[in-house]
Structure formats: structure tokens, C-alpha cells
């Protein structure tokens, strides 16, 4: 065995293929996060309204996405959309849809929690100076809730990014799937290649998620300091 395992990463186009897979992963995560953020904020605001039917429906939506593991959510969409509803989406788009809906569900709960924890007198002072409901949310409640919810939102984003590792389960050509192909193709020459390929993917995920959670931590610490002073 003359080959050191790490060289598997640089054999042929392996490295660029892995980065290509990472790009697929990142694209899916980014689009899902953006859609999920927007939809989640809207749903979160709606959940603070007093319409009981609306609240029930949105609560059920949240609970469904809370209880069903993401792995299972992916399989549900993967099998049921084409077979039952005759909707044939390409894998990456379907995955984006699942992650966006999941993000929106979790996000709606964060937004709602932050909105209802804005002190009541803020809402009342806003109404007292004659703001409409839209203006109240736009200028008073959402900006105040934003600082409260930011750390939780960043943490949610890191979770979404980590969960994109499940993409391979529904045959999306993500970084892990390509990693597996490379391992299989090079197993003869590089028996320890598996160690290096998974090691690199491990590192790539860490490099994306670590700065985000570092940021969330810092914001949270600042907030704690402000509370204690």
C-alpha cells in the first residue's frame, strides 16, 4: 500500500467534485433558510392574532413538523408527492421544500415567543399614540422581538445546515453522496480513503456551522450581561 489515504482527496477531480456537492448542499440550505425565515415570520405574527381557528391550524402545522423526525419528513415527501399527488419534483427542489416548511414551522414558534415577550406596555404605548396594527408590528413589536429572537434563529439555521446531511437519503447528489461515490471508486487504491473523505466532510460542516453558533453565543452572552446589569 504505497498510497497514503489523504491523497484520495486530490486524485483526479475528486476535490472539485466534493466541493460541487457542497455547493448543492449550500444552495438547498440557503434557499430553504430564506423561504423559511420569511414564511416563519409571517406565520409567527399570525399566531399572535386572536383568531382561534387560525391559531389552531398553525399550531397543528408546527406540532406536525415538531413531532415527525426530519428523516421521516423527507421520506414522506419523497414517496407521497409523486405517488399520491403526481407531483414530480427533482430531489433538490423537494428537499428545499421540506427544509423550508420545517424551518418556517420552527421559526414561527421563535417569532411568536419573542413577540409575546415584548412587554405589554410597549404594545399599549404604541396603540396610545394611534398606531395601526400593521404599524404597531412594523415599528414596535417586530424590531424589539428581532433582538430577542436572533440567537435562537441563528441556532435554528445551524440545525438546518446540519440536517442537510440527510439529503443523501433521498438521492440528492450532495457532498456526502459524492463522498460515498469517491470512497467506493477508490477503495482498492486507498483503503483508508474513507477516513479522509468523511474527515473532510466533517470539517466542511464544522467550518460552516461553527462561525454561526459562535455568533449566536456571543449575542446571547451580551443579552445576559444586559439583563444582569
Amino acid at each position: 500500500m504505497a498510497h497514503s489515504g489523504i491523497n484520495v482527496l486530490f486524485e483526479g477531480t475528486n476535490f472539485t467534485r466534493l466541493l460541487g456537492g457542497l455547493w448543492t448542499t449550500v444552495q438547498i440550505a440557503a434557499v430553504a433558510i430564506i423561504i423559511g425565515l420569511i414564511l416563519g415570520i409571517i406565520l409567527g405574527v399570525l399566531r399572535t392574532f386572536h383568531n382561534p381557528l387560525l391559531r389552531l391550524v398553525l399550531r397543528l402545522y408546527l406540532e406536525f413538523f415538531r413531532i415527525v423526525p426530519t428523516t421521516v419528513l423527507l421520506f414522506l415527501f419523497y414517496y407521497i408527492l409523486p405517488r399520491q399527488m403526481n407531483i414530480h419534483l427533482p430531489g433538490p427542489q423537494m428537499a428545499t421544500l421540506v427544509f423550508a416548511l420545517w424551518m418556517a414551522a420552527e421559526m414561527s414558534d421563535i417569532v411568536r415567543g419573542a413577540l409575546i415577550s415584548v412587554p405589554k406596555h410597549q404594545r399599549e404605548s404604541g396603540l396610545a399614540i394611534g398606531l395601526s396594527r400593521y404599524q404597531l408590528y412594523r415599528y414596535i413589536l417586530i424590531p424589539q422581538a428581532f433582538t430577542l429572537e436572533l440567537p435562537a434563529t441563528i441556532n435554528l439555521i445551524t440545525r438546518i445546515i446540519k440536517t442537510t446531511s440527510l439529503l443523501m437519503l433521498i438521492s440528492v447528489m450532495d457532498v456526502i453522496n459524492i463522498g460515498q461515490q469517491i470512497i467506493e471508486a477508490n477503495n482498492q487504491h486507498y483503503p483508508t480513503g474513507v477516513f479522509w473523505v468523511y474527515g473532510l466532510i466533517f470539517l466542511l460542516y464544522f467550518l460552516i456551522d461553527y462561525p454561526l453558533s459562535w455568533w449566536a453565543n456571543r449575542l446571547e452572552q451580551k443579552r445576559m450581561e444586559n439583563i444582569n446589569d
Binding site: S165, V194, F195, Y198, F202, F206, D209
Partner: peptide, 16 residues
């Protein structure tokens, strides 16, 4: 906290 469980498992099960 910053790496997916799936990769952790692959590492343990396939790479080790």
C-alpha cells in the same frame, strides 16, 4: 454541536 449526527455515525461505522 457543529457537525451532523449522520457524519458522526459514518465516521464511527465506516471510517474507524
Amino acid at each position: 454541536r457543529n457537525t451532523p449526527l449522520l457524519i458522526q455515525l459514518f465516521f464511527l461505522y465506516y471510517a474507524f
